[in-house]
Design a protein around this nucleic acid. Sequence first.
RNA 1: GGCGACGUGGCGGAGUGGCUACGCAGCGGCCUGCAAAGCCGUCUACGCCGGUUCGAUUCCGGCCGUCGCCUCCA
Length: 451
Amino acid sequence: MAELRLYDTFARDVRRFEPRETGRVGIYVCGPTVYGRIHIGNARPFVVFSLLKRFFEYGGLDVTLVVNVTDVNDKIYTAAAAAGRSSIELAAEMTSFYVADTDRLGLGRPDHEPLASQSIEAIVDYIAALIASGNAYEASGDVYFRVRSDARYGALSRREVDQMDQGEGVEGAARKEDPLDFALWKTAKTGEDSSWEAPWGGGRPGWHIECSAMAEALLGAGFDIHGGGLDLLFPHHENEAAQTRCARGTELARFWVHNGMLELATEKMSKSLGNIAPLHEVLDRFGRDAVVLYFCGAHYRQPIDFADEPLAQARRGVARLREAGRRLIDGPSPAELAPLRERFFASLAEDFNTAAALAAMWEWVREANRRETAVGRADLVEMLDVIGLANLLEASDETAPAEIAELAAARQLARGSGDFARADELRAQIAAAGWTVRDAGGGYSLIPGDD
RNA sequence: GGCGACGUGGCGGAGUGGCUACGCAGCGGCCUGCAAAGCCGUCUACGCCGGUUCGAUUCCGGCCGUCGCCUCCA
């Protein structure tokens, strides 16, 4: 594969990416907190990093993608209490919904999907290491990370420790040495129905430590790429970075890659604000192909608006690709089109610019469509496969039901006898049934309508 | 208040110190009995004000606007 360059948030610049270990790439992405069905915004990192993995694999690399699931969290306790259910049960149910909803994206599963609740031992060990190194302290059953003990704290998110909000009024403030310190372990409180044993007493892990522990357990500290939404940059990723730096004396990841936010109207979409479009509903309305193409339409670091029109446009794009697929034949593509294919992959190699890559792909489609003789599909399959849309070219089962076929045959007879009024009437009937008749040469074909 | 991102044609959205992005929609044309699909053409932009430059949408400064994070957000 050609040289790949990626934007690294830590460096605030595009840098050449080279795997830590030749031929292998380890990626860790912060996944959802499972207190409800995930929304379309949560789907963006899932799509972005699943596709990035495919691109690496296209380049012959062996990729390990880890996406965690946070199943122990304040929000889960709150949601479970509101629903009168156990938090364990709620988290388990929402985890299965998360898997089912993201499965529908058709981009495969991450290689590992660790649960915080199943990683307590590693988390406790990590906390113990931070206490031993003097970077954390116990306070009435809680354990806090001593932020000012990390000289580089703030380097990732570019914040000055002394200019940070002092976090007044935050829970546990009275027990902290410094308001900036954050919880590694929280002692069990009333209303919380799950807790684990630890040297500091029964309780549960804080949010940030699980990622340091699980990422290290599966990929080893100093792995290649840490990903997630830009909203996690601070404090979550800053804290993860600090924990690993202090406990292990090494940086957690070599590249920090953040996807931009999905915004609804003018406000960022988040579950906290309640302006939610659940992923499964969006998939129901527009289909998985359109959703994937929609995400590819903009560069991954740009904020994108969530609205019907962009999704509808993506759906038209899907139709155009299917249409192109009907014209193509099996086999290699014309050499003259190769530069467009190469531009597609070169765009992906330059900070994974899917939008620029799609422009090259559309040009390829137009060039193929304008040719008199049928064009081999190999190039387009190669391009679409990387973005998870090669299915659009597969010979779909488009055989019309007998009833529709009869109407079409009758229409053809009417046309042959010059009875165009009758022919148009039959065409309208066929359209009403969801099919389109297309006259071509001396014959005709039947094309399924919109999904 | 602190830190940061962004303002591109009707819409979405790349990119670049001088050369058509691309897609959708519209309009005109080819094709068609008429359509559909496809193709061709067309409409054609870089928030505002300065500066640097032979030349800026692209670099620098200011302003206006939008948005994100500031310890529960992917």
